[in-house]
Design a protein around this nucleic acid. Structure first.
Length: 434
RNA sequence: GGGGGUGUGGUGUAGCGGCCUAACACGCUGCCCUGUCAAGGCAGAGACCGCGGGUUCAAAUCCCGUCAUCCCCGCCA
């Protein structure tokens, strides 16, 4: 009879039984002829005890991949009162050299620089305090999909190799595409709008976007995962921010249920999503900064302004989020819908969370002639955007949408000090390996 | 693209003109230990102080160059 593998977090349901466990040696502590092994698998940790000489000891090292068969026993002296008496231990693969990062001690004890953790990324991901970020990120993305599907959105995939950028051609990575020059998509913007017009009305996409900007900061990546959605037949841009409010509430409620251990590990408090997230126009925000903090911002908020504004909304409006709306046309892309009352402004917005911009969105221009005119006013040639413009000729509904930076959202939720920590293999100004 | 900072064993730091034949913690190696759980005890290995040049009687330490890297700003999710 062959034993079926038991996951480590299910061991306590097997007291008195023999179990087969597989995993890594998280810690190894020899006490005379007794050896305590804390076994780690994808579900957790359990202590196992090895008596005498039941294994080739020279290969028994921390981080070795092993499998054990043993009886689950209760013992007050063991952590959580449970351990496994090893009958048989097989070493599947043992480290050929000591790992450069210790993964069985708290980060504040071993003190690993981010650079070192990224250099040895796959190893550092084994560290519970490092790798758990991605369980949270995966759940956030799952909840994003789940909520939008429930609201009638279709999940789509759009090309990442494109002919032109959405903002006019800067900040794009050029790639040689046979005899043509192509670019890596900096946003699914054009395509998601086109698919709204194609009749799907509501679409969303989870995918990578590429920015060739020379920034090197704790909040920028040159490749990141964008959580996008776009919806048709809206009355005004408030429909988009309302939907995002509900979406964020759903995502965060899901995280509380799905990731309690991870939240505890990072001492993270899930931000409360108020019934209505405050909306401030950019002009109002700038005014508040000037009056309350003597902070002068001109056409946009700088990072300090974003932090101060969030301080203000938390204190005065009890919200860790704030929508900043009505950005000037000059600072927004050509497809941003001008405001009806003040055409120098747009029906666009950013969402700030705990001092960082995590979303940009807005209503888009849907009348064909207006869009063409907007392109021309920026020196763009509508001819090179015919693939995008075509559907606008044939009854494009009023529409809008937004994009959330997955890594930024994760980082803000877990209070990470650098977005790179929320990317498996971050691409920044100098790093393309691993 | 602009500004500032830092490069010391595997990891994280200390030392910032002579006391450095480079220190500390963790890791690593060997021995001891049958209740460990940031295990403990004893012994030990491991760094030409990023690289190149210079100043000095003397350089990890000061200067110049170079490479790497981090942070901030612009810009952005």
């Amino acid at each position: 009879m062959t034993l079926k593998r038991t996951w480590v977090n299910e061991v306590k349901g097997h007291i008195g039984q023999r179990v087969l466990l597989k995993g890594w040696i998280h810690t190894l502590r020899p006490i005379g002829k007794l050896r305590f092994i804390v076994l780690r698998d994808r579900t957790g940790f359990v202590q196992a005890k090895l008596k005498g000489e039941k294994a080739p000891t020279e290969e028994l090292k921390e981080e070795a991949a092993i499998q054990i068969i043993g009886a689950v026993v209760q013992d007050q002296r063991a952590p959580d009162g449970i351990e496994v008496d090893i009958e048989q231990l097989v070493i599947l693969s043992s480290p050929v050299e000591p790992p450069p990062i210790q993964i069985n001690r708290p980060l504040d004890v071993i003190g690993v620089r981010l650079e070192t953790a990224l250099d040895h990324r796959t190893l550092s991901l084994r560290h519970p305090e490092i790798g758990s970020v991605f369980r949270v990120r995966a759940e956030l993305i799952w909840a994003f999909r789940e909520y939008l599907r429930g609201q009638g959105f279709l999940e789509v995939q759009t090309p990442k190799i494109v002919a032109a950028g959405t903002e006019g051609g800067t900040a794009l990575f050029a790639v040689q595409y046979f005899e043509q020059t192509a670019y890596l998509a900096q946003s699914p913007q054009f395509y998601k709008q086109m698919l709204v017009g194609a009749g799907y009305e509501r679409v969303f996409e989870v995918g990578p976007v590429y920015r060739a900007e020379q920034h090197n900061t704790a909040r920028h990546l040159n490749e990141y995962i964008s959580l996008d959605y776009e919806m048709g037949f809206i009355d005004d841009f408030r429909e988009i921010t309302q939907l995002e409010t509900e979406l964020l509430r759903f995502m965060f409620e899901h995280i509380k249920r799905a990731c309690p251990k991870e939240l505890e590990l990072y001492k993270a408090e899930v931000p409360k999503v108020p019934k209505e997230i405050p909306h401030l126009t950019l002009a109002e925000a700038i005014d508040i900064l000037k009056k309350r903090y003597n902070k002068h911002c001109e056409s946009d908020l700088d990072p300090e302004g974003e932090k101060l504004l969030c301080e203000y909304t938390k204190k005065e409006l009890d919200s860790e989020f704030v929508f900043v709306t009505h950005y000037p046309r000059a600072t927004r892309p050509m497809y941003a819908m001008p405001n009806e009352e003040d055409p120098t402004l747009t029906n666009s917005f950013d969402l700030l969370c705990r001092g960082l911009e995590i979303t940009t969105g807005g209503q888009r221009i849907h009348p064909y002639n207006m869009l063409v005119e907007s392109m021309r006013s920026r020196g763009l040639d509508p001819k090179s955007f015919e693939f995008y413009l075509e559907i606008f000729k044939y009854g494009m509904p009023p529409h809008g949408g937004l994009a959330i930076g997955a890594e930024r959202l994760t980082a803000q939720l877990l209070n990470l000090s650098n977005v790179r920590e929320a990317s498996f293999f971050p691409r920044d100004r100098t790093r393309i390996v691993p």
